[in-house]
């Protein structure tokens, strides 16, 4: 699976305002509403479901990366977006590092395979330090989109 298979380019944010876990999750979910990927009426329910998932254990996977996510019946395909926080947000990650890079995923309840493959793609690409660093340093959503596209076509995978 590629980034372009699930990342809504119009919903990418290069400098989130939020400085809390809930804040960044809400900001990202709102950006998906603005991009027309999730229905406005479902916003609260989706934010709540993602926070409920976080209560079970942080989705901070290390290296300053987090993958907040949920299943939700209102989507018929996997949708996601990417956000960068300049200052980093405490996400209670296993390695204790503040999170700067967020991949938010909302998937249909009956497609666990797609979700697993999106996680695989994210983690595989982010294993590359250079890619990770360049994403965190990106100044605009377009720059982030270009980096994802570059990863899709060439792969930063060594």
């Amino acid at each position: 699976m590629k980034f372009s298979d699930f990342v809504a380019v119009d919903a990418i944010r290069s400098d989130v305002d939020a400085d809390t876990k809930q804040g960044v999750i809400r900001e990202m979910a709102e950006s998906l509403v603005e991009a027309g990927k999730i229905a406005p009426a479902e916003l609260e329910s989706i934010v709540k479901a993602i926070m409920k998932r976080e209560d079970l254990g942080s989705t901070g996977i290390g290296r300053g990366v987090a993958v907040p996510h949920t299943k939700h019946p209102s989507v018929d395909r996997l949708v996601g977006t990417v956000a960068v926080s300049r200052k980093g947000i405490d996400f209670e990650s296993l390695d204790g590092e503040p999170v700067q890079l967020f991949f938010l995923l909302v998937s249909p309840p009956d497609r666990p395979g797609d979700h697993l493959r999106a996680l695989e793609n994210i983690s595989r690409q982010l294993r590359d330090d250079g890619f990770c660093r360049r994403l965190k340093a990106a100044q605009t959503p377009t720059e982030i989109g270009d980096l994802l596209e570059e990863a899709d076509s060439h792969g930063f995978v060594s």
Partner: peptide
């Protein structure tokens, strides 16, 4: 590493 474990995509 959670990140590394996820690269396995173990179904």
């Amino acid at each position: 590493s959670i990140l590394e474990l996820l690269t396995l995509a173990a179904e």
